[in-house]
Design a protein around this nucleic acid. Structure first.
Length: 645
DNA sequence: CTAGGGTTAG
């Protein structure tokens, strides 16, 4: 708005950026009539007693339509400079309008919530000068705390509010819950939940949705489900929160099933872009390519195709389902590729064994002027380690901090340990762990232990186990690796010793688990599975496959990976590893020549690796197997990886 | 005597 001419010379006195007539009027008015400087706020320590009755607001004074009040509010609304606000504060004090609910609320709103005038300590000081704060005042303060660095304050305010028997509305609870989520305070959240019932807000869908999110983020999936069941009308966001909860709880399969449930005639809820984002994550976890493709089609149908976050998720999903060409297709079709897109593509190439291509992509993105970040480097370094590009990896690691100013995290060190370890530079890897500035975690020692296994380094292996024991983080898998190190070195006495130790400590092995997707349905198998409805057929098929493979020269490795420690004691000749069961089921359930896609939660053992190599040749089927950190593409008797020989 | 809410990419 153009200012009237007569304001022009005074305009210079007022702070810049005044864009409304009212605000400049007030500001100038104040400049001329105020001698007061910025008010000294009240001392917040002097706590008032809770009011016995309703606030004695002086209606007589302010209730008649005073134009000054309205002007003040609009001035507060349009204030654009700090000094301006201070002047308004002074004015409010002089006219006693500070205690006017509407005025103080507007003022609080400007100071507490995000914007150029935000000032947390000022807002707290101001808030404490309000003698009888209303719900709205508390709401504003609590909401501000939920977005600040000290979300605990929100909970304190909430308690204060209840103590002063100011009744909470659904929004208050929503904001406090947000605070609790910020610092994962399950206890505080549960308190709020109780009060929600007391206040009679137990059927407010939005409030219940945030409660669900609280339980979900605090790893209380069951409570989240309970809350979900109580929501009267579940909208898309409620479903999304439920799905994200299931994914967090590693129940990706259940999460996928909700895609159909929410759409059925009973609920009639349309999945939106966030739903797709979440479900793509679930597909990536489960290696559920067909389901992922379905989501992809849905995205195109709904016209979400241009969204960058969805494209990035698709790239990641396809590459984590071992379908690299599809990932590349999406990648090519993505406009305005961001670091995220490039990193997803690079990690995808890396996990599928295309180290050189990953490096090329890395160079290309730099040529296009996209700055790599820490996650890009994780991808690049893992590409180097999976493809044995030792020198490249070392130089990239070096450039990362020197050229790009990124301090390596534990993940980067992990990649380097893996890289050096695989290449047989075990001493260097050990040295790197002991000299790095971050505290080594169990994963990094485990990586080194894996390298010791490959290279048969008995002594170092023992040392690594000690470190794991020191961290109190040793798992069954670690002892299994140690067992394998001993057994491949022929130290049978030590093997017995470790077994005894494991028994004494009663260490359980993590059950191996494989999934295979057939016609969009995920089938899950564990070692020696007895739960699958077609188990009879499956075991028969597996025996048949075993016979066929033996003819072709496949030999069971007797001293191979001992995933199941008790096998021999139980007298099993051969345990049915879950990946083999999944393969047998795949042969049963899919037509000749179909690629079998299997995901496994552990590291593929040498025996299964040999089994799959021979299988891919004898049965003339491609197998894409994802183990816990990479892909193995089996075709014609060979595997894309160079980890096993 | 009134501002304001919940899910989200590598």
């Amino acid at each position: 708005m153009a200012l009237p001419l007569f304001f022009h010379n005074r305009w210079l006195l007022a702070p810049p950026n005044l864009h409304s007539l009212e605000s400049s009027f007030i500001a100038i008015h104040l400049l001329h009539h105020t001698t007061a400087t910025a008010p000294q706020p009240h001392n917040p320590t002097e706590e008032d007693e809770p009011p016995s009755k309703l606030p004695p607001f002086h209606h007589t004074e302010h209730n008649q339509p005073t134009p000054i009040k309205e002007l003040l509010i609009s001035a507060i609304k349009s204030a654009s400079h700090k000094t301006h606000l201070l002047q308004l504060h002074a004015h409010m004090l002089r006219t006693s309008l500070v205690q006017h609910p509407a005025v103080s609320l507007h003022f609080l709103y400007r100071v507490a919530l995000s914007g150029p005038l935000q000032d947390h300590s000022y807002s707290h000081r101001f808030f404490h000068t309000i003698t009888y704060p209303f719900v709205s005042h508390y709401n504003t303060m609590i909401r501000a705390s939920s977005m600040s660095d000290s979300p605990q304050k929100g909970l304190f305010l909430y308690r204060d509010m209840r103590r002063r028997s100011v009744s909470a509305d659904p929004l208050t609870s929503t904001f406090v819950i947000k605070c609790c989520i910020r610092f994962l305070c399950l206890f505080g959240g549960a308190q709020v939940h109780c009060n929600v019932f007391k206040d009679g807000h137990q059927s407010d869908s939005l409030l219940l949705t945030s409660l669900m999110d609280l339980y979900s983020q605090c790893q209380q999936c069951r409570d989240a489900c309970k809350v979900f069941d109580e929501i009267p009308h579940r909208d898309t966001i409620a479903w999304n929160v439920m799905i994200s909860c299931l994914i967090r709880d590693k129940r990706s399969r259940d999460a996928l099933s909700l895609f159909d449930v929410m759409q059925n005639s009973k609920y009639e809820c349309e999945p939106d872009d966030v739903t797709c984002l979440l479900l793509l994550q679930a597909c990536a976890h489960l290696n559920a390519l067909e389901f992922g493709e379905r989501i992809h089609r849905y995205i195109l149908e709904r016209g979400y195709g241009a969204a960058l976050n969805l494209s990035n998720s698709l790239i990641s999903m396809y590459s984590r389902c071992g379908s690299l060409d599809k990932a590349y297709e999406v990648f090519k079709g993505t406009c305005n590729k961001s670091v995220v897109s490039w990193s997803a593509m690079i990690s995808g190439l890396a996990a599928n064994g295309y180290g050189r291509e990953a490096i090329e992509a890395f160079e290309e993105m730099q040529r296009l002027g996209i700055r790599p970040d820490d996650q890009t480097f994780t991808g690049v370094l893992s590409a180097c380690s999976h493809s044995g590009l030792v020198d490249v990896g070392i130089s990239v690691f070096d450039r990362m901090s020197r050229e790009f100013g990124i301090t390596p995290t534990i993940h980067h060190y992990g990649c380097m340990v893996d890289l050096l370890g695989r290449a047989g530079l075990l001493g260097k890897a050990y040295q790197l762990i002991t000299s790095m500035p971050v505290r080594p975690d169990s994963t990094i020692w485990r990586t080194l232990l894996g390298a010791c296994r490959i290279h048969g380094a008995v002594m170092l292996g023992e040392r690594v186990i000690e470190h794991l024991i020191e961290l109190k983080a040793q798992e069954a898998g670690d002892y299994v690796l140690l067992l394998n190190i001993y057994s491949s070195a022929g130290h049978w006495d030590k093997v017995a010793e470790v077994r005894k130790l494991m028994k004494e400590k009663s260490i359980q092995t993590t059950p191996g688990c494989s999934t295979i997707e057939v016609k969009g349905i995920i089938h899950e198998f564990v070692v020696d599975d007895v739960l699958h409805p077609r188990k009879g057929e499956i075991y028969e098929k597996l025996d048949e496959i075993n016979k066929q493979l033996k003819i072709a020269g496949y030999v069971v490795e007797p001293s191979s990976e001992l995933h199941k420690i008790d096998d021999k004691e139980k007298g099993y000749v051969l345990s049915y590893h879950s990946e083999k069961l999944a393969i047998a089921f795949g042969v049963l359930a899919t037509p000749q020549g179909t690629t079998l896609r299997v995901a496994n939660n552990l590291r593929l053992c040498i025996d299964c690796h040999n089994f799959l190599k021979t299988f891919s040749w004898v049965y003339n089927r491609d197998v894409v197997l994802r183990d816990h950190n990479r892909f193995h593409h089996f075709r014609g008797g060979r595997c894309s990886c160079n980890d096993y020989w």
